[in-house]
Simulated assay, not measured.
Amino acid sequence: MKVRFPYFDTIGMPLLGLAATVLFVAEAKRQLRKRTRSKTERLKENASVAALALPALRLLLLPCLYAAARQAEKSKFGVLYWAALPVWIRYPAGFLLLDYTNYLWHVLLHKSDLLWRFHNVHHIDLDLDLSTAWRFHVGENIASAPYRSAVVALLGAPAPLVLFYELMFEGCTAFHHSNLRLPYKVEQRLSRVMVTPRMHGIHHSIVAKETNSNYSVIFSWWDRLHNSLLLHVAQDEITIGVPSFRDPKEQTPLNLFMIPFKHQRAWQLPDGTVPEREEKFPRTRLAP
């Protein structure tokens, strides 16, 4: 299995690093949501999770996706080959389909009790910023490999497209997890096409119906298509995290690794109440 991707590693990764640096500085200067915890403490915690997750992403998931694409190419297998589309249509169509199937995977992460055990580690962060974009349990990245590889094979997505999509996937994930306050009108227009920080901030709310919305990764169209779009919640009204994990002392590296293997808690605050919010505005109206 091929594990070295020169263009991805020598061009793509430095560009991602540059984008992350710009976002890191920008979110510090233009903060969208007030922090509840020390940034330094969270950086250490999230880095400890990423230390296992990122190698799995690069050394397992990416090679699996590429191998699936190459095998489909050799056998002329997959929807995009069967449709006999010209290259100038096959690549954009493949990009959209890859993004749509990742929307479905994200929904599955929330709906499956088993997968949620791992995805929950991402959500129990008590603040949301750039570092949260890489706070994924290594088990979640491993679990995604069979699903995403099968999707690549069934679509017949070209291998170069798969690598390009992964770069865009990671870049957009960093962007919409950031705590960057964009001008409201700019983000209002942008959210019609792609996932933005305000849009994804709602997805990390402790209110269940808000967490179970805004699943899209790059394009926001999939949430509109499936009526899972929710934009009306103001950022200063959002409490980030999961209601049953409010104690910062539980955010230790060892505990974060072990959470999927422990008894799963009900979606409620420590006092037993379930967070709710009355809908005051249309769901698809972006709140400040």
Results as ranks from 00 to 15, higher is better:
46 N>T: 05
127 D>T: 08
64 C>Y: 14
60 L>S: 08
90 R>F: 06
53 A>Y: 01
159 A>F: 04
229 L>D: 08
263 H>W: 14
99 D>G: 08
238 I>F: 14
41 E>I: 07
124 I>E: 02
26 A>R: 09
32 L>R: 15
27 E>N: 00
200 H>P: 13
2 K>M: 13
19 A>S: 14
116 W>F: 05
26 A>S: 06
34 K>P: 14
115 L>M: 11
26 A>D: 09
27 E>I: 12
261 F>G: 12
286 L>D: 00
167 L>T: 12
123 H>M: 07
218 I>G: 08
25 V>D: 08
152 V>H: 02
132 T>I: 06
30 R>T: 00
55 P>T: 02
242 V>W: 03
75 S>K: 15
48 S>F: 03
204 H>F: 05
182 L>P: 14
215 Y>E: 11
88 W>T: 03
192 R>E: 15
76 K>I: 09
179 N>M: 08
173 T>F: 11
15 L>S: 08
91 Y>F: 13
198 R>I: 00
273 T>S: 07
148 R>M: 10
43 L>K: 05
130 L>S: 04
35 R>N: 07
86 P>C: 07
108 L>F: 13
91 Y>N: 13
73 E>H: 03
235 Q>A: 07
14 P>N: 00
210 E>F: 05
5 F>D: 12
80 L>R: 11
125 D>G: 01
149 S>E: 10
251 Q>R: 14
182 L>G: 02
62 L>S: 06
4 R>S: 12
246 R>S: 11
55 P>I: 02
195 V>E: 15
54 L>R: 14
250 E>M: 11
10 T>R: 12
276 E>R: 15
71 Q>I: 09
144 S>W: 06
175 F>M: 01
140 E>M: 09
157 A>C: 14
23 L>N: 04
108 L>C: 13
103 Y>W: 11
136 F>K: 05
164 F>S: 15
116 W>D: 04
96 L>E: 01
145 A>Q: 07
4 R>W: 13
51 A>W: 08
149 S>P: 00
40 T>E: 15
258 M>V: 09
249 K>M: 12
97 L>V: 01
216 S>C: 01
140 E>S: 05
56 A>R: 07
42 R>I: 03
167 L>N: 07
213 S>D: 02
153 A>P: 10
282 P>S: 11
227 N>Y: 12
75 S>Y: 15
87 V>L: 03
103 Y>D: 02
127 D>Q: 13
162 V>S: 09
110 H>V: 00
154 L>P: 07
20 A>P: 14
218 I>V: 06
31 Q>I: 10
49 V>N: 06
273 T>P: 02
171 G>L: 00
286 L>H: 03
170 E>W: 11
